[in-house]
Design a protein around this nucleic acid. Structure first.
Length: 140
DNA sequence: GCCAACGTTGGC
DNA sequence: GCCAACGTTGGC
């Protein structure tokens, strides 16, 4: 199983909206970046991800699970764009802010810290564990 | 609201 | 295939 991080501006698509989709989940549409798309293509059902609020909050607020493999993005006419579906698994008890990530030397290599613009990014198992620790998440 | 960093586009 | 111009993202 691999770990990921999904970024969204809460004004556009928030954690609460994601939670409201329940077990069915929702497609992670609208991504128009090849790197991000390629990461989604490599995702498997059951992969875990963090849900991050950019711009407003700038913090990891939830844990999600990939529930459908990459398929054409319904928000685009262009067949180049694909996306996965994700569903909410758990809220992060203590949201992990970007500031916290920057200050923790164990996360200095995290893509969130090194490339702030990539909207879908891989997370290493070690980084996953650190964020879980900081966020008070157990069993994920 | 500004701007740095990054990605994409298109002329050559 | 290079690179200038432009557009977008996202932290500050």
């Amino acid at each position: 199983m691999n770990y990921w991080l999904f970024k969204s501006e809460p004004d556009t698509w928030s954690w609460d909206q994601q939670v409201a989709k329940g077990e069915i989940g929702e497609e992670w549409g609208g991504v128009r970046n090849y790197q991000a798309r390629n990461f989604m293509r490599s995702m498997e059902i059951g992969d875990r991800g963090f849900f991050y609020h950019s711009n407003i909050g700038k913090e990891v607020v939830g844990v999600v699970e990939v529930c459908a493999k990459a398929h054409p993005d319904s928000t685009s006419e262009d067949p180049r764009w694909e996306c996965v579906d994700i569903r909410a698994l758990a809220k992060v008890p203590v949201p992990v802010t970007l500031e916290m990530c920057k200050q923790d030397h164990r996360l200095s290599e995290m893509v969130l810290v090194t490339n702030s613009r990539l909207s879908v990014q891989p997370v290493t198992p070690a980084q996953w564990a650190v964020i879980c620790e900081l966020g008070g998440l157990e069993g994920y």
